[in-house]
Design a protein around this nucleic acid. Structure first.
Lengths: 137, 137
DNA sequence: ATCCTAAACAGGAATTATTCCTATCTAAAA
DNA sequence: TTTTAGATAGGAATAATTCCTGTTTAGGAT
């Protein structure tokens, strides 16, 4: 994604466009590994040594609030950030800390139909996601 | 569950039976709210003021290793402990930090069949669980 | 029943992800 | 160009969890 499109993404949500936000958002868009705040910091810090850890945290949180990123917790309790906004599941590798994306519309359809059919007493389902654990082959 | 059955549960896994383990395991068996280590500590500390926080953490971890408890992370990154060992899902209330159990054999069957049918390239599924978010009605 | 030892415990220090605080700076509207 | 609300840097504070060490104890052996 080029700078203009990154800028457009950021400003379209009413956020000021800053160098820090560009760098942090670009880092996420270029990564496939659902990085933690610290991973983002390590990735950008060589080219941008003046960007502080606090800014990374605050910026990631702002992106989540603006609807540009999703966040979730991994097994170790670390917050992970994900630029893919569509509904999808994650594959957790039991042998490493790898987390891959898994998207399957059939599965979503299946689950949607299931919970429409099987109402839960005293609970209104709003969002269902899967935690899939296993081994990379 | 009476003391003898609690003791049997603990010793059958090759663990020494101690007062601390009894109290901590009993607290979990009597709770429905998937408590954190701190919640367990608060629950037992009035009757057992000499049990330390470190012991609560270490004991819960030992139970998990022995296969007496399950653990998982909630949205806030807190470790939650669960005496229900069978496969089941959790309902996360969006308005509070409540987490309820949800068990449905049909759903498990459905998911099992789905992943048998839909192999994932380069990944071998070992365990699937659901994160269900919504509102308590 | 007593002794012995590996394991468990209490208490507190250390670690670490994350949040908070505040003085300074800057994007972008006027 | 000026103005100012919001963004940032840097570091202190917080909080869940782990680690460390000296003491105690469960339960098998004597």
């Amino acid at each position: 994604m080029n700078v203009d499109r990154l800028k457009e993404k950021i400003t379209s949500k009413g956020m000021k466009f800053t160098h820090q936000r560009l760098v942090i958002y670009r880092s996420l868009c270029n990564s496939q590994d659902h990085p933690t705040a610290e991973m983002v910091y390590n990735q950008i810090t060589e080219e941008n040594p003046s960007i502080s850890m606090g800014t990374v945290y605050k910026t990631l949180e702002s992106f989540v609030n603006a609807g540009i990123l999703q966040k979730f917790r991994d097994d170790q309790g670390l917050m992970r950030f994900d630029p893919v906004m569509e509904t999808h599941s994650h594959l957790y590798c039991n042998d490493s800390s790898d987390i891959r994306d898994y998207k399957n519309p059939d599965l979503e359809e299946l689950l949607h139909a299931f919970f429409k059919e099987n109402q839960i007493d005293g609970f209104e389902v709003e969002e269902v996601s899967l935690v899939i654990k296993g081994k990379t082959k």
